[in-house]
Design a protein around this nucleic acid. Structure first.
Lengths: 240, 240
DNA sequence: TTAAAACTTTGATTTAGATCAATTCCTGCT
DNA sequence: AGCAGGAATTGATCTAAATCAAAGTTTTAA
């Protein structure tokens, strides 16, 4: 197993950063106690991606895994003829970069200035042998991603435009609560075009449906990015 | 960890059945060598489900995991108002029953008479501690399921009815080849209503689109269940 | 500060696939 | 063999969302 120098570099300005990390409770590293996490820190590295930059591309060799510390990311697939489909949005605490192949099966791009914790694939896989709990925790996370993807299949197969948007808002709200942030209002960190693409709709339909939801007092918009759910508890009824 | 008697029962009529099992090469158990697989055999049990029977329900406590040995299964979710969405079809070698929660997040039903290999959840999880390679192999399988789900999201978000059907046929063909069976013709083990539901279409659209594909000589139908892909290599072009 | 570019909204029209409605075709069963 | 009853096909019509089109609005950067 070849060591990869750049990825075993410790960030000298932030000793014990893992112990105090804001996403530790929800990310895979949360399974390690304070004494063990120092060893994980030694094989991890901080890295930033400005808004709009690509973290990796579909087809690239998988050499690195990431934990999201701050910001948000879209992952999307391209077909041969250039059609694009966003298959997920990822948030702090999410694990990024695993694949069932030797190459990444989707593109990853920062939606806002984003901070990641980076691991060399081989080094982290060797670490699994020492701390099998980590691999088990990652299996949990991947099972969760699969459940989220299956929910999205339901949404695309059976929900109307209005239901898709409301479900999307609930998902973001719940995601925020999981991170210990307020679940209302929510901030849309992606443009309308990404929302439309993710939900299998067009920009125009998203815009019109938002206008309807505003008229019916189901949501309030604060600018174009922030949405207040007027009665979050009643939204599941609209999803019937 | 409570032992569950029924699931530690060895099938007396089939000693060394694991060593000779037809799906061993692709299922998670394939990671074990002949001497170790005997131990897995000791905690596994054969079980059959006739066509149309439920293997488990959404919301049931997860007590059992399964390997599919023979047959095929549909997994589907129900919304509160009774809408149904098939989120996947599973085939021999697939691992069934893992969840990110304490309960199953979908229903599983046999599409034809189906043979499964059953494991008690707790017993198998303890087995992981002894053979961490198994957990790693299952992580691979779950990552593959996730990749398949993301492909389905692309299909539902971007493909036309015709493209959905052609992609579906290619998927079945490739699945069959993976099992060492012929990739052409293929057999549709599910009714039109399940195909339509899975692809986010109606029965009528599936039927009409099949008629078009027949007229254009892209496929030939042998009865209602068997389909010959006239030129499998050229089908990816229709997916553009 | 202003102009350009990018993003968002709103309106008019079109359309792929859904829905409604008959047949027709299997397949198992007596 | 005949005959139910589900499964599949085919036809007519409708509709939710797409597409085409034109303003507004916000952001960026000079």
């Amino acid at each position: 197993m070849e060591p990869v120098a750049s990825c075993t570099t410790k960030n000298k300005n932030n000793n014990h950063r893992c112990a105090q990390c804001s996403v530790r409770l929800i990310a895979f590293c949360g399974i390690l106690d304070d004494s063990d996490i120092i060893q994980l820190e030694a094989i991890s590295k901080n890295i930033s991606f400005p808004k709009g930059t690509n973290i990796f591309f579909q087809g690239d060799q998988v050499k690195t895994f990431f934990n999201i510390k701050q910001g948000s990311i879209k992952i999307y697939k391209l077909s041969h003829d250039g059609r694009k489909q966003i298959v997920g949005f990822l948030y702090p605490g999410d694990f990024l970069g695993m694949s069932d192949q030797e190459v990444y099966t989707y593109n990853a791009e920062a939606l806002e200035d984003t901070q990641l914790c980076q691991f060399n694939k081989i080094v982290l896989e060797n670490f699994f042998l020492k701390f099998p709990k980590i691999e088990n925790k990652i299996l949990n996370l991947v099972n969760h991603e699969l459940a989220v993807a299956q929910d999205q299949i339901f949404l695309l197969g059976k929900y109307s435009a209005r239901e898709r948007l409301l479900q999307f808002f609930l998902n973001i709200s719940n995601q925020r609560e999981k991170l210990g942030w307020g679940g209302n209002p929510i901030r849309l960190s992606m443009p309308r075009s990404d929302i439309a693409n993710y939900l299998g709709l067009t920009i125009e339909t998203v815009s019109r449906t938002l206008a309807d939801l505003k008229n019916e007092q189901i949501i309030k918009m604060l600018g174009t990015q922030d949405i207040f759910l007027n009665n979050k508890d009643e939204i599941p009824q609209y999803l019937s």
